[in-house]
């Protein structure tokens, strides 16, 4: 299915430039797997990056640089520590998933935490981000019709729908759609009525929970 909601140009540019945070980049990578037009655009921006790099005045290298490089390529490949592929298979589905979910390539091989209670009808699982201790990425699932605790943001939240749909003030985000909420946004998210919903979300900055449930949940999802 072709996505209807796409990340903004500034986000695609930051991704191509390598300046988007690790968490949002992962969410975007999931979106790109299912979105040919964003993929083409990121590809074009990478062409732009290469062209700009090409146009930079070349830096001078140390006199031994070439000799070092020619020696380095003769050395055997280091044996990788642990086979990532096996890790991928073992960790691919350590937790239950709603029926019909195909785990995106970008998530294969990542450790996923067990499902925890988030709110009535809602559960979440932490997506491990090795090397990025401050990245906060989570899977969230909710049954048909579930209301998420109303919340706002200081910073941004990047969400990609993997299954089902969520509605936010009359806008429907279906599988393959990505949406970004910033500090100006106050969410009133509701899972679509036709079935369970699964999303991946990355949070940058702090989330501001409103209401009683929000205040209960706040300590669970982190600072």
């Amino acid at each position: 299915m072709t996505p209807c909601h796409h990340p903004g140009e500034d986000i695609l540019l930051a991704h191509a430039a390598g300046t988007l945070g690790a968490g949002p980049s992962l969410v975007l990578a999931v979106h790109l797997e299912g979105c040919g037009s964003c993929r083409a655009l990121v590809g074009a921006l990478e062409v732009a990056g290469g062209t700009l790099m090409e146009q930079l005045p070349p830096a001078s290298l140390s006199s031994l640089a070439l000799a070092r490089a020619m020696a380095a390529i003769e050395r055997p490949l280091p044996v990788p520590g642990g086979a990532p592929v096996e890790l991928g298979n073992a960790a691919a589905l350590p937790i239950g998933m709603p029926e019909g979910v195909i785990l995106p390539m970008a998530l294969r091989g990542r450790r996923l935490g067990r499902w925890r209670w988030l709110a009535p009808g809602m559960r979440w699982s932490r997506v491990d981000m090795p090397g990025y201790p401050h990245a906060r990425v989570m899977l969230m699932r909710g049954g048909a019709g579930t209301l998420l605790p109303a919340h706002g943001h200081r910073g941004s939240e990047f969400t990609q729908v993997l299954l089902g749909a969520v509605h936010d003030d009359g806008v429907r985000y279906g599988a393959g759609d990505m949406f970004v909420a910033d500090d100006a946004t106050n969410h009133h998210l509701r899972v679509g009525g036709d079935g369970e919903c699964l999303c991946i979300a990355a949070i940058e900055g702090r989330m501001r929970m409103n209401g009683l449930i929000g205040r209960l949940v706040q300590p669970l999802v982190g600072p």
Partner: peptide, 28 residues
């Protein structure tokens, strides 16, 4: 899919990201 220039830029960019977090693991 890409020219050499684009491909090498992507490799360099990824190394820059990894250098920024200074936790370089070969498999990463």
């Amino acid at each position: 899919r890409a020219s050499a220039t684009t491909w090498i830029f992507a490799i360099a960019r990824n190394l820059r990201i990894d250098a920024a977090r200074r936790d370089i693991r070969a498999d990463a």
